[in-house]
Write a protein that binds this DNA or RNA. Structure first.
Lengths: 228, 228, 228, 228
DNA sequence: GATGAATGAGGATTCATTCAT
DNA sequence: TATGAATGAATCCTCATTCAT
């Protein structure tokens, strides 16, 4: 396996670092193709009902080809989720990054929600991936990965907004916020135009009003401190 | 399983309406049996993964018998959902009924959430039924039924809390509230003990803070008018 | 499930014990059919290469039907093996049963081999079942069952022939004898007519000569006492 | 299989044998690599379950490369078997070669078995190759090759031991002996330590006692005292 | 009504083999 | 040569549903 590397490769000397990847180019393309197909199928039928054969068919390849790149359906979901996370970060920047404590809460929340919604509307498969075959207790892996990543980032954001809350509280609030967001997203995706906008605003309201009292003391003086 | 022995045999001809009733009785019992089994299976494996054969097995009947009472899997879910709705109403009273406008919001919401949570913890199948193979746009029938009913009732409750909002707003707020509630329920069911209680409180907070500003003007004078 | 049994069954009162089986009759037939098909396929392609679909096809039923009666391929093999064992016992009597110590060894061995060979020639699937996908250490279940049963019986036979050998020796000798027998059977089945007969005689010779010196002292006075 | 590589190509006229030789060298290494991998996989999973992809992976090459050297799975087995035969001959000398008729039978058999066992314990793939997906009548090619070679050699050995038996008898006895040996080998490989040794002794006993009476008259006057 | 047998298309996954590069 | 992508039929097995009894 290593001695063949010795042959200097007379064909394309300029791209030395791509050499080991040259053959993978096709594969890389196939992977992209398959993930795209998977995204489409996940959106159409939902994750649970999506079949690997359907994904392969949608991608225009044979089932065997799919299994050359992914060991099973879950791996596809995981990879798709991870790529979506990366894309989200790259495209929308640190939508969920910790913010300057001076930023008004409405602004921080509003921006985060807007960007998030925008991303999800453009990449509806993201939503599909967040809805696995959930039985309350048992959560699937791919799910977990996506969920955990999102949760982490939300925790980071919240930590900056609520600096003096204990971690357990932060986690809980993050869970609730993510839950609220997901629920809202479902509604947003189910509507269009003005209605959709109205739902977006509604989510913002929910989150802002939920979080505002918590950050009150630490961020500004508010007369209505309300801590459970 | 042992009550069937009560059937008195063929000896009383005069009460024509009783005879079919007896048949019905057995049928009703079978249906109840099947629904109970379905509830159990739905809880264990989730709606999507639940198989009719598994339900029949759990009920101790043959698959054919199941199909004598329900035309398909979805019908089971629908019937189960409808019965749960009834039971919820009967057991917990008008948890979601319109309230006296004088009731403090926290109290109204708190009571509604508590009852709702209590019911769901006792009847976890209710939750399972709310999580079908959801694809954002396409919502399954059984789902719809349950959802619509819940929505209706929430709308009623909200209408009494927010008397001067237009129906479209009421519907939207109801949708959001239900979404929030469902999201919260998932978290509640995923935790136990003190953590669970904390999540319950969190849901209440979310909802109260979300709704309070809306009802503020119409219900009392609040100093912190907050209109987006 | 059991209370329906109380209804007196007006159709065939005479065969009360067949009643709970009435529906199973078809199933029982199917099982027999499937086992026959399995036998045929095992013989044709060997156990390892035999596919459940091929068995179902051979039986003229759908794959689903097969799986209504057997959870997997191995279960088929196990059941087939067990039935073959029973049949062997019933048809050929106690071919491998312990014998009167007075029986001359040649006679005992000769008869056992003859009957065994006869059975295997009539039921070649028996042989197929003894050849799983053997990796020396790992032996499959179905295999084990058949093997263990045969071994047991051979041990019984040997125990009567070699009364003063320790159990470990008996087991070892039984293993060897069974191995020899199986090897011989393969050769016998691979030949026909006079050649086959010659091979049968050869097996007898191997076994007799192998066992004779062991039983010598205990059975008769032989000048060539031979104890390892 | 490797001689075809001798084709000199069109480019180097003067040193026709050197250039291709270098190629051959690499090819030989590849082949050795692949065969080693195949041996390992055959031992682990058995011949039937071994997949060419697995062999290629184990060898650290691509499936395509494997098929550059072997037209199919069976060819690998055949080549492996043939090399094992050669190795056996070279390493253990003429373990199965005809012997001086003066050699006591026990000694001849004992030595042959010992060497054979030793070789098989060191090269367990040899055993794996002897257990293809056997169907009594149909014997696979690779199998045949190995089997035929072994048989030949055993026939040679037997011919020297039983000089006045007709060839048909020799063949038959050789088949039986080989069968016995294979059966014994399975048992030997399945045990360890003292048990293993005991089984080895058992095989020797079987074979010696089987063959002794045949060679008795023709070899010497033995009152056939026989102590292992 | 009830039973259990029957279906057959469809699920995920594997594998020997071929092909483009 | 070597690679790794591609194939597609075949594997075992499941399931909603129907049917004969």
């Amino acid at each position: 396996m290593s001695e063949e590397r010795a042959e200097p490769g007379t064909q394309e000397p300029e791209e030395a670092k791509d050499r080991p990847r040259r053959r993978q180019a096709r594969g890389e393309r196939r992977i992209a193709q398959l993930l795209e197909a998977a995204a489409s199928v996940f959106c159409t039928t939902g994750y649970t009902a999506a079949s690997t054969n359907a994904i392969a068919r949608e991608a225009g390849v044979s089932p065997g080809t799919l299994y050359q790149f992914f060991p099973n359906k879950e791996a596809i979901a995981i990879e798709l989720g991870s790529r979506l996370m990366h894309e989200m970060r790259e495209t929308y920047g640190e939508a969920l990054a910790p913010v300057d404590p001076a930023t008004p809460l409405e602004e921080a929340i509003g921006a985060a929600v807007d960007r998030f919604i925008a991303f999800n509307c453009e990449r509806p498969e993201f939503f599909a991936l967040m809805h696995g075959p959930d039985i309350p207790g048992r959560v699937a892996e791919q799910h977990d990965a996506l969920h955990a990543t999102l949760l982490n980032r939300i925790e980071g954001l919240l930590a900056s907004l609520l600096p003096d809350r204990p971690p357990a509280d932060i986690t809980r609030v993050a869970q609730v916020s993510l839950g609220v967001y997901k629920a809202g997203l479902e509604l947003v995706l189910a509507h269009e135009g003005a209605e959709r906008d109205a739902y977006v605003q509604e989510i913002k309201d929910v989150l802002i009003r939920y979080l505002e009292p918590m950050s009150a003391g630490t961020r500004r003086d508010h007369p209505w401190i309300h801590t459970p």
